[in-house]
Write a protein that binds this DNA or RNA. Structure first.
Lengths: 417, 417
DNA sequence: GGCCTAAATCTAGGCTCTGAATCAAATGGT
DNA sequence: ACCATTTGATTCAGAGCCTAGATTTAGGCC
C-alpha cells in the first residue's frame, strides 16, 4: 500500500478529497481499535466500528499488507465459547514499531523503549555532570543512550516509530525553546534531531509528567508540579495539555510575588532546593539547637530535613511547614486560575513529600475557601517523565497512526507521478 | 432532506458509518465556506474544496433543498470578467436563521440579534434592580427581551438558530453553575431553557469577553479580564477557551494571597469596586486633603478617582497606582501560569483604565523579568459580552452547521423507521 | 446570425460500502 | 464416522458517490 501523503485531518479540514478518504477513515478507526485492544476478531471490530463484515475484513487485509496487523492462526483463544467456525483474529504486529521515551534531565538521562501498547521493553540510565557536557555532548549522549536501549535483546531490533524527549525547558508547538539570558534552555533543548530514526518530538519535562498523571485519571483536570531543584508545572485542562505562546505555560514566575520577602528563596526553586536553602539559612542565622547541625552542611538536603522533622526537631518542622505553606499557595493559584481538581507533586522528592502535603492541606482548609484541590504525591517516582514521554508517543500514534510507516515496511515513493 | 441524527464528528469518532458520510462531510465543507464568504460560485467552491464541479453542484442542490443556500439569479456580479456562460452563484439564505447573543448581567441585560455572518441586526437593553428580580424573574426578563429583539423589523421574523447567554457565574461543560453559599451563581444561571426556540447555550460572561477579544487576534494567546464591580478572567490558550472542572477557570480567588493584608479589598472585587473602596477607606482614615472629599461619598466611583488623579490629586494618584500594581500582579500570575502574550481589560471600566494600565506596565518592567505580556484596554466597550456571545454562536454553527435545522425548514421526523 | 468562452450537464467508469445468499470450518450428538 | 448445528467467511448484486471527459448551453461580442 502506498502511503497517502498528508493526514486525514488535513484532508477533511482543508476539504481536499482523495478517492480513498473513506477507506482511510475506516482504516484509522480499526487501527486505533487495534492499538487499544491489542488483538480482536472481525465481529468485535464490526460492533466497535459499525462497519459491515466485508468492509472490516477488507480494511484489515490492507492493514496486514501495510505491516500494521498480522492474522493470528491460533484463533478462538481466551476460552470463549467454542462452537461454530473459528473467527479470524488480527493482532497488532509486535515488530510494527516501538516507542522511545527519553528524560534528558540536567544531569540524569533516562530512556525507556516500549511496544505500541505502552509496555516497557527496555530501559537505560546514565548520569552526566551538567558542567562538563555541552550542547553537542548532550545530544550525543541522548542518541547513544537511545541506541543502546534499542539494541536491547527485548526490543528485537524493532525500529522506533516515535521518540519523545523530555527536556527541562519550555518547548513551544514547534519543539523549540525560547531564548533565555543564561542560554540554559537552549543548552537543554538542542532543537535539532539527534539522528534518531522515526519521528522525534520534544516536550517540556513537567508537561510530560502531567501527561503521565493525566493518563491515570483521564477524566480529571490536573496540574502536575515537577519539583526538586526546580519548580515547573504541567497543566492538563479540559483534557488538553496547555502550552501557551512560547511553551511557557506552567512556569512559576509568579512565585516572585509570594517570595519577594524571602532572602533564601527564588521563584524557580523547587521544594528540594528550598528545604536545603531554608535549613542552611536558619542554621546560620540562629543558634537554635537542631539535629541538623550535626550533619555535613554540604550534604544537607530535603530528606534529612523531613527525617529530622519526623523525629520532632523544631527547626526542621518549621521548615516543613513553610514548604507546605508555599505549596498551598501554589495550589491555590493553580486551582483558582485553572479550576483543576487535582494537584500532583512529582519528581524525585515525591516519595518523601507526605508531611509537606499534609500541612499544605491544613493551610488550604484554614486559609482559603473551598473547593480545595486534592493534593497528592505522584506514585510514579523518577520514571514519571519517561512514562509521560511514552504516553505522549502513544497519543501521537493513536491520533493519526496512518501518518507513520510501520517498521521496515515503508515503501519508497516513486518520484514519478 | 431528512436530517441525519448525530454529528459527523460523532460518527467519525465512534466509527459508526452512514452511507451519506462522505456527502455529509462535503456538505459541511461547502456550508462552512458559505458561512465564511457569504456567496460564491461553483468554480470558487471547487478550488476551495478540491471537489469536482459535479459534486459541488450536487451538494449545493442539497443545501438549497435543505434551506441553507439559495441560488442567486443575478449571477456574474461584482464586475468580474464577463465572458463565457455565467456561473451559478449560491448565497447563504438570509432567512436560514439568526444568532442571538445575550448579556444577562447582574443588573444590566443586553441582547443582540445577528445574521449568520455576524452582522448585528437588532439590539435591546434593559436594566433591573438585582435585589428585586428573582430567578424566574431573570429568566422571564431574558426571554421577553430576546423576543422583543427578534420582533425587530430588521430581523424579519427569521427564527434563531443559536442563542448564547452570558451569565456572571462559572459555567461548566453542561451549562450548569456550581453551588455556592450565597446562591448567587444559581440565581445568575437558572440552568433551564428559558423557552427560547433553537439551541440555547450558556457561558460565563468573562469567557465570552475572551472569545470576543480572541476573535480579533485569533493567533494570539490571550487573557481577558472582565472587571468593574467584580473580577473574572476568560482564558484562551492554544486557541481554546479554558473551562476547568466546574467552569471555574479564570476565577480570581488567588487574589486572597495578594490582598490578605488589605482591609478594604476582597478577592472578587473588580478594579471599579476597588477604586471606590480604597478611596473611601483612605478618606476615612486620614485627613489628607483631596478633591475627592468634595464629592458625595455615596457616588464616589472609579471615573471620579481617575479624573482626580488626572488633575493631580495625590490621594487619587496613589489609588490609581495601587490599582495598577494589583493589575500588574494579576498579569504576572496569568502570564506566567498560562504564557499568554496579551492581557485585555474589558468591561465598563475599560474606557477609563488607560492610566492604570500605564502604571501597571511600569510595575511589570520594574519588578518582573521579561517577557512581559502586552496590557491593553478592550475597545469593545460594554458590548464585549454580547459580541462574545455572538462569536460563540458563530463558532458553534461553523463547527457543525448540519446539526442545526435552518429556519422553518425543519422537517418532522416520521416516528416509523 | 455566427463565433467565442466559460460553465453546466451528461455519460461512463471506478471505488467503496451494504446486505443477502452461499460456502466453510469447527463442535457435539448419535 | 457422520450429520446437524452453529458461527463466521466469501461471493455477488446493487446502490451511492466521486471523477474525468465529452457534449451542450448561456451569454457577450463581432
Amino acid at each position: 500500500m502506498r502511503p497517502v501523503s498528508g493526514t486525514v485531518k488535513d484532508m477533511t479540514e482543508s476539504g481536499a478529497r482523495s478517492p480513498r478518504l473513506l477507506r482511510r477513515l475506516n482504516a484509522q478507526t480499526l487501527l486505533r481499535h487495534a492499538l487499544t485492544t491489542g488483538d480482536f476478531a472481525a465481529a468485535e471490530a464490526m460492533r466497535a466500528s459499525g462497519l459491515s463484515r466485508a468492509t472490516v475484513l477488507g480494511v484489515c487485509d490492507e492493514l496486514v499488507a501495510a505491516g500494521w496487523l498480522e492474522e493470528i492462526a491460533d484463533s478462538r483463544l481466551g476460552g470463549q465459547y467454542q462452537r461454530g467456525r473459528p473467527a479470524r483474529r488480527y493482532r497488532l504486529r509486535e515488530d510494527a514499531g516501538v516507542l522511545v521515551g527519553v528524560d534528558a534531565g540536567e544531569s540524569r538521562f533516562d530512556v525507556a523503549v516500549a511496544d505500541l501498547r505502552g509496555t516497557v521493553l527496555a530501559q537505560r540510565h546514565r548520569e552526566a555532570d551538567p558542567g562538563e557536557v555541552d550542547l553537542d555532548g548532550r545530544r550525543d549522549l541522548v542518541r547513544s543512550l537511545v541506541e543502546e536501549a534499542l539494541a536491547d535483546p527485548a526490543v528485537q531490533g524493532v525500529p522506533p516509530l516515535v521518540t519523545v524527549i523530555g527536556v527541562p525547558a519550555p518547548v513551544d508547538a514547534d519543539g523549540a525553546s525560547p531564548e533565555d539570558n543564561s542560554a540554559f534552555w537552549s543548552l537543554m533543548n538542542p532543537g535539532v534531531d539527534p539522528g534518531i530514526p522515526g519521528l522525534v518530538l520534544r516536550e517540556n519535562d513537567a508537561n510530560l509528567a502531567a501527561l503521565a498523571e493525566h493518563a491515570r485519571r483521564p477524566e480529571q483536570h490536573v496540574a502536575t508540579l515537577l519539583t526538586g531543584e526546580r519548580f515547573g508545572a504541567g497543566l492538563v485542562v479540559d483534557g488538553r495539555l496547555l502550552h501557551g505562546r512560547r511553551g511557557g505555560a506552567g512556569e512559576m514566575r509568579f512565585l516572585d510575588l509570594l517570595a519577594a520577602d524571602d532572602p533564601d528563596a527564588g521563584p524557580s526553586d523547587g521544594l528540594g532546593a528550598l528545604a536545603r536553602r531554608w535549613a542552611r539559612g536558619e542554621l546560620e542565622r540562629s543558634a537554635e539547637p537542631s539535629v541538623l547541625r550535626d550533619l555535613d552542611p554540604g550534604r544537607l538536603d530535603a530528606p534529612e530535613v523531613f527525617a529530622a522533622a519526623a523525629a520532632g526537631d523544631a527547626l526542621a518542622e518549621r521548615i516543613q511547614r513553610r514548604l507546605g505553606e508555599r505549596l498551598a499557595h501554589v495550589a491555590v493559584v493553580l486551582a483558582s486560575v485553572l479550576d483543576v481538581e487535582r494537584i500532583v507533586v512529582a519528581g524525585g522528592i515525591a516519595e518523601a513529600i507526605g508531611p509537606v502535603l499534609a500541612h499544605a492541606r491544613t493551610v488550604l482548609e484554614a486559609d482559603f475557601y473551598p473547593p480545595h484541590p486534592e493534593l497528592v504525591a505522584s506514585t510514579l517516582g523518577r520514571d514519571v517523565i519517561v512514562q509521560g514521554a511514552l504516553e505522549m508517543g502513544l497519543r501521537r500514534i493513536r491520533e493519526d497512526p496512518l501518518a507513520l510507516d510501520p517498521g521496515g515496511q515503508s515503501v519508497e515513493v516513486t518520484p514519478s507521478e
